[in-house]
Amino acid sequence: MSDAFVQLSDVTLMYGKSVAVPDLNLSIREGELICLLGPSGCGKTTTMRAIAGLLDPASGSIHIDGRDVTRVPANKRGIGLVFQSYALFPHLNAFENVAFGLRLQKLPEAEIRERTEAGLATVGLKGYDKRKPAEMSGGQQQRLALARSLVMKPKVLLLDEPLSNLDARLRLEMRTELQRVQKETGVTMVFVTHDQAEALALADRIVLMKEGKIEQLGTPADLYARPETAFAAEFMGFENIFRVEGSKVVTDSGTLELGFAPASPLLAWRPDGVSVGSGPHQGRVLATSFAGAHREYVLDTPLGPVKADAAIELPEVAIGETLAFDLPEATARPLSA
């Protein structure tokens, strides 16, 4: 673990008497953008708060840049956090929001001015110094919160669902913005989200969490192509997940013969991994929708509903009619139980 910049060792986090995160081990490399991904309540925000020092671990230790910070209070840790709500100071204008931390360090006025203006410029808010947060749009508030953390030159910058309050277009814009800022500043970023598309697009590595534990850790490409559990597969868009019995897949509603005998207890297919138009099985079309590059079908099969994407060149099959399909071995992803 020599390359670990942030190291969490056997960290247990409690809320009152209930354990939110048991025995977590995680190392983060310097300069990487790591994403904590998972549904709400999975412990990702809790973990982030522990790194920031807003929550003391019940046991275990946290090291940052080689130093044990487990007992170092939040205001002495040198960590930046961009809150989901931005947590801007409503009584201060943009300039003073960004200068807030610098002023606490009692830096010379000229340096405060210079660094604050540079910070505002970095996030594209040049000329907005005098605006109060309430007079800024959601995207601008987001940039302001980012600038406020960045000017402190934090060792680690934590971001708690920073894009969740923005509309779809702004969200895409801010994604590239965040990547640009990270490349420019080289700051180590820990990004918390429940949106897998966001995680896949942004992260160097993804930590998928479930019920306080790490379910799987890997690069986006890794996680996307090779989820290891049903939970990971579901999160990565494998919408058809079935139990395996011999050479059959099984659900509570019925079975289907595969024609091959997998070794894993579970198999999963993405909708685009299900072949449609030909195959040994028949399904009745329950729903169909046009999705640009392909057509999405929900088929009623002996297994229950199966989601399948058909190439747009294939003629549309109406609801109620039957469609041939196959669950091919080539696109099947074996999962552990």
Binding site: L54, N75, K76, Q84, F100, G101, L104
Partner: peptide, 26 residues
Amino acid sequence: RADMEEAAVLLGCSRFQAFTKVVLPN
């Protein structure tokens, strides 16, 4: 919101400073 004070603390405030600099003005 409580996270405003947390933000202040992460920027270097003590708890008391967070109260006087962020809570009280608001």
